[in-house]
Design a protein around this nucleic acid. Structure first.
Lengths: 200, 200
DNA sequence: GTCTATATAACGATAGAC
DNA sequence: GTCTATCGTTATATAGAC
């Protein structure tokens, strides 16, 4: 065996669940992808549901830390926006299926998701909130709530990956051109956002 | 019978497929939702796959016309942006499940989707493209490609609905507060975007 | 721990009576 | 057109040998 069997299974489950979702995934496919017998899945994780929970919670957990870290960092508001966009786009570039997986399954099991999130009580880092409120108060940026600004930033980063096939179809792109499209956002998106909120 | 049986089925299929996706939907559920026998589904549509195609193509077809109509209208660039945001948010407000459904199934069947889109050869309306290029050339707006600008607009409109449960969890909102959150975007998003591209 | 074989239930789809 | 009954297949899950 190259690796621990449990790890082999988790890797395979990640791959299949992320691509096909819970309802579309077959235990047999996961077993094949892991190169092991189907029975082993149940031996290690008891049920499809339990195996899925592991993968889903792991996925959700990977979605937010980068955002929280940057918004908590010792930076100016403008620096945080710039760094967040750049680092998050880099993250999404190597985790292209993650947003779609998390959003799809979150919408299939909203309650379960809400409970999981409430346990981990994620909140918008207060230092970011205060920076926005202060900048607005001093008239340095347009009046915007921290929540709206953050949702705008994440929307602009994540949506193009969710809608990749749509963008490629409408804009008549191939995969290479789409990568260039994202590369371009890497450079221009921070400016776009900073312009949107500047008052001067 | 209140309505035509075929229509009853299509309504039920719309509801179930949009909520649970192709893989998660059960023919029995659709039959129950339509208040008819399971056999009738096959009598009218032959197979689950054929029934799904109808619903999916109908869904895709509803996603774009509003965008195209506004971008083609006899308006200035600034008016188009403002009207597009407002009308599209209104459309999404009463079609909340549509973006998630279309994006999910598009990602499950990229080829089938691409072929369908290529048939209908949707393109960005040339009048919008020319307006952006000219405004950039004259220095009236920041240098931005029509494609990037359009993706930014659609991202800012659609993503919050896709991520509704995520936003509600992180921001500790209930449904009512989320509706207010969207209502707020209705007012502020056009300004946000116009600010982002203005040069003056 | 890992395999084969199988239990059990659900699914899509069809046949045939009315 | 609409129903009941059922076919054939596939899914998750388990039992039991090794």
């Amino acid at each position: 065996m190259e690796k621990d069997t449990e790890q082999q299974i988790l890797e395979a489950a990640r791959k299949i669940f992320q691509k096909q979702g819970f309802a579309g995934a077959r235990m047999q496919e996961i077993a094949d992808a892991a190169g092991i017998n189907k029975s082993m899945l149940h031996y290690y994780f008891r049920s499809k549901d339990k195996l899925f929970q592991k993968i889903f919670q792991e996925g959700v957990s990977r979605f937010f830390p980068l955002i929280m870290r940057v918004l908590n960092a010792d930076k100016t508001l403008e620096e945080k926006i710039t760094v967040l966009v750049q680092e998050y786009l880099d993250f999404l570039r190597v985790n292209r299926q993650l947003p779609h997986f998390v959003i799809h399954e979150m919408n299939q099991h909203p309650k379960r998701f809400r409970e999981f999130m409430d346990e981990k009580d994620m909140e918008i880092p207060s230092s970011f909130v205060e920076q926005v409120l202060e900048a607005v108060h001093k008239g340095r940026i347009q009046p915007v709530t921290p929540a709206q600004l953050l949702v705008n930033i994440i929307s602009l980063c994540v949506f193009p990956f969710l809608a990749q096939n749509m963008v490629m179809a409408v804009m008549q792109m191939d995969e290479e051109q789409f990568d260039e499209f994202i590369e371009h956002r890497h450079k221009e998106l921070p400016t776009f956002i900073l312009n949107a909120i500047r008052t001067s």
